[in-house]
């Protein structure tokens, strides 16, 4: 396991009597997508502001890509890209002019800039948007442009604060393809979202409530802990019942149904998938019900309240 690229220990921020972030300790593995979740006002944005060196914590430590963010808040900025809920493109400037402005901040110029921006423009499908001003672009394209600019200087860590808020389902999908590609290329992505189905696109999920960490695991581990597991409805032709029963093997609990049977398993690990694949080969039809992340997090919150 590589050393974490983001690490906080006991991170705390108080504003007067109000504790916005309370003793938060998290670790993020390099090259992964880390979903940071919680309702409005739960402390997400305050945490991000501390991670990127914009806000000094009341207590605790923060390290991002080897930089002690509290001691050297400016130093971390070359290592990170940030995109907020309101994309920080300058209105009145065209996208291309925005690119040149941001490139100037990172001393990127000449052929190096042309190569880098040319590649991003192609990958993010921004060619037609280049001469437009951000205020004239649809929200989905504006978000993509924001992400392109946040990655212009090849940061090792990307902080994305609700990047898909107010964006339609098609643009949300394209956006996540790009985020997964970035992670595939080794970039670490720290992302917040209110769309819990998007947690499925991430490698890890941390959930905070009233500034405290209440869940911190892979999405699959959370699903196992906070749901009744997978349900597989198997429809079997009458003639094939005996053959199917012999094929399945002892992978989980089964219960007979008029069409065949229902199988319950805590996880769809390789042996279970292999068994299900053998079932399909015998002519059975499967309907796999995976517990929805919305229900998983509803259970996280209600168990905490209880």
């Amino acid at each position: 396991m590589p050393a974490p690229i983001i690490r906080t220990r006991g991170l705390t921020k108080r504003f007067g009597d109000f504790t916005a972030v309370d003793d938060l300790s998290i670790e993020v593995t390099p090259g992964t997508i880390f979903a940071f979740l919680g309702a409005n006002g739960s402390g997400k944005s305050t945490t991000i502001r501390m991670l990127i060196g914009l806000l000094k914590p009341t207590a605790g430590t923060v390290e991002v890509d080897g930089v002690d963010v509290i001691a050297r808040p400016r130093r971390v900025r070359d290592h990170i890209g940030y995109m907020g809920q309101k994309v920080s493109l300058y209105q009145g400037l065209t996208l291309r002019e925005n690119v040149e402005f941001y490139a100037g901040l990172y001393a990127l110029a000449g052929k190096e800039l042309e190569d880098r921006w040319g590649a991003l423009r192609e990958r993010f499908a921004l060619g037609e948007a280049e001469a437009e001003k951000p205020e004239d672009l649809p929200a989905g394209i504006r978000q993509r442009a924001g992400l392109a600019l946040a990655t212009l200087h090849r940061p090792r860590v990307l902080f994305l604060d609700e990047p898909t808020a107010g964006v339609d389902v098609r643009s949300r999908g394209l956006f996540w393809d790009l985020i997964q590609d970035e992670a595939g290329a080794g970039v670490t992505v720290f992302v917040t979202t209110h769309f819990l189905e998007e947690v499925e696109y991430c490698d890890w999920a941390a959930f905070i409530d009233a500034g405290r960490l209440i869940a911190n695991a892979t999405p699959e581990a959370l699903r196992q802990r906070y749901s009744d597991g997978y349900r597989v409805d198997v429809a079997v032709p009458d003639a094939a019942r005996t053959a199917v029963a012999a094929t399945l093997g002892p992978v989980g609990e089964t219960a007979a149904t008029p069409e065949g049977f229902t199988l319950r398993v805590p996880a769809l690990d390789p042996p279970v998938l292999a068994a299900l694949d053998r079932l399909v080969a015998t002519g059975a039809r499967l309907d796999i019900r995976q517990p929805a992340m919305t229900d998983v997090f509803r259970r996280v919150l209600t168990e905490r309240a209880a």
């Binding site: 309702a39 409005n40 808020a165 209110h194 509803r298 919150l301 309240a305």
Partner: peptide, 10 residues
Amino acid sequence: TAGVDVVARA
């Protein structure tokens, strides 16, 4: 329900 937690949303 924009920006509301999953319990309040339900």
